Simulated assay, not measured.
Amino acid sequence: MSNQGGISLKSDSKSLKSDLKRLGDFKRKVTAVFTQLDLPISIYAATSRDRFRKPRTGMWEQLLEDFNLTAAHQVDLDTSFFVGDAGGRTGHSSGGVSKDHSCCDRDFATNVGIKFLTPEEYFLEEEPKPFVREFDPAKYINNATSVVFSKQNPLDVILFCGSPGAGKSTFYWNYLKPLGYERINQDILKTRERCLKKAAELIKEETPVVVDNTNPDPDTRAHWVKLARNLDVPIRCIHFTASLRLCEHNDAVRSLNETMNPEKRTMLPRLAFTGFASRYREPKLEEGFQDITKVDFMFQGTAEEETIWRKFWI
């Protein structure tokens, strides 16, 4: 089971010739290995950022379906194992041992529920080496302080600041919609100008507004501070503090699980998160806000949804 993101299977790709060459090279290498081993063997290669890419379990689920092993009792997980070189090993320069490029193989095995071994542990019977996980979702379960948010003004603007995947829209639906706030979102309205116009119309209709965009820096937020000042209403800020990796995880969970994706959002490119991080400046009262409320990410969902969320997705 191999992640092969460098191979594209899209026939409309602009680099079709080089894509076909990479695919051909990969097939030739695989054929050579299979011939040398002369064993019953199957290969699954994930070429996209979808549910098949490790540490996600799509390839495992496909294997079970292909071999008619979908009943829980048909696979002996306790004696099964997965060997991979992406084990999150830290490495050390003194011994000439390089750091693993990721922990996705170890995380994949954990998701499946089988033992993980590095090649050195399995083939050479070496002792396990130290490893670290860059991101472990389990650490974020029940690890945030509940936020009590109350309405302070008859009419105002609430400005969100936070990365994609930080939980902004969920916070709106759970806490602000019931208070009578209407949501302004640039993904829906497409341009800031349309968002500003719609917000002004709602305020003039005596309807409080939530601006559900990322608003990463003072220059972006200044447009909304100016609008509130011109309309003579207070503006408050809700600051979502979730880290880049946590937001990437949330985005993957949301986009790859229909039951947890009511708005049918597709997975965002990594640039959406790194772009926010590069522009991000923590909001300050001096920008013109009445107050700033910090919101740490807190998972909310059913026991079944929590089981899904606890898995490794990135």
Rank of each mutant, 00 (worst) to 15 (best):
residue 71 A to S: 13
residue 154 P to K: 09
residue 269 P to G: 04
residue 167 G to E: 01
residue 89 R to I: 07
residue 102 S to Y: 04
residue 212 D to L: 07
residue 64 L to A: 11
residue 185 N to T: 12
residue 219 D to T: 13
residue 19 D to K: 04
residue 18 S to R: 12
residue 177 K to S: 11
residue 166 A to I: 05
residue 227 L to M: 12
residue 141 I to E: 03
residue 84 G to D: 11
residue 199 A to S: 14
residue 58 G to K: 08
residue 276 F to C: 04
residue 149 F to M: 03
residue 83 V to P: 08
residue 79 T to E: 10
residue 40 P to Q: 05
residue 302 T to N: 09
residue 96 G to F: 00
residue 124 L to P: 01
residue 163 S to F: 00
residue 252 A to E: 06
residue 29 K to G: 02
residue 18 S to D: 13
residue 196 L to P: 03
residue 277 A to W: 02
residue 102 S to H: 06
residue 277 A to H: 08
residue 85 D to M: 05
residue 81 F to E: 01
residue 309 W to I: 03
residue 187 D to H: 08
residue 289 F to Y: 14
residue 97 V to E: 11
residue 41 I to R: 08
residue 277 A to Q: 15
residue 205 E to S: 15
residue 41 I to T: 14
residue 180 G to P: 05
residue 209 V to I: 12
residue 296 D to Y: 05
residue 19 D to G: 06
residue 280 Y to I: 03
residue 1 M to G: 03
residue 68 N to R: 14
residue 266 T to M: 11
residue 269 P to N: 05
residue 190 K to H: 14
residue 267 M to I: 13
residue 143 N to D: 10
residue 151 K to D: 08
residue 80 S to M: 09
residue 94 S to E: 05
residue 130 P to H: 03
residue 107 D to T: 10
residue 52 F to I: 00
residue 238 I to V: 15
residue 247 C to H: 09
residue 84 G to F: 11
residue 131 F to A: 06
residue 36 Q to W: 07
residue 33 V to G: 00
residue 154 P to Q: 02
residue 313 W to T: 06
residue 86 A to H: 01
residue 232 D to Y: 02
residue 133 R to M: 07
residue 45 A to E: 03
residue 222 A to P: 00
residue 198 K to I: 01
residue 211 V to H: 01
residue 194 R to E: 13
residue 65 E to T: 12
residue 264 K to G: 08
residue 213 N to R: 07
residue 23 L to D: 03
residue 270 R to T: 14
residue 190 K to T: 15
residue 205 E to V: 00
residue 138 A to W: 03
residue 1 M to C: 02
residue 218 P to E: 12
residue 179 L to M: 15
residue 66 D to Y: 08
residue 261 N to D: 07
residue 157 V to Q: 02
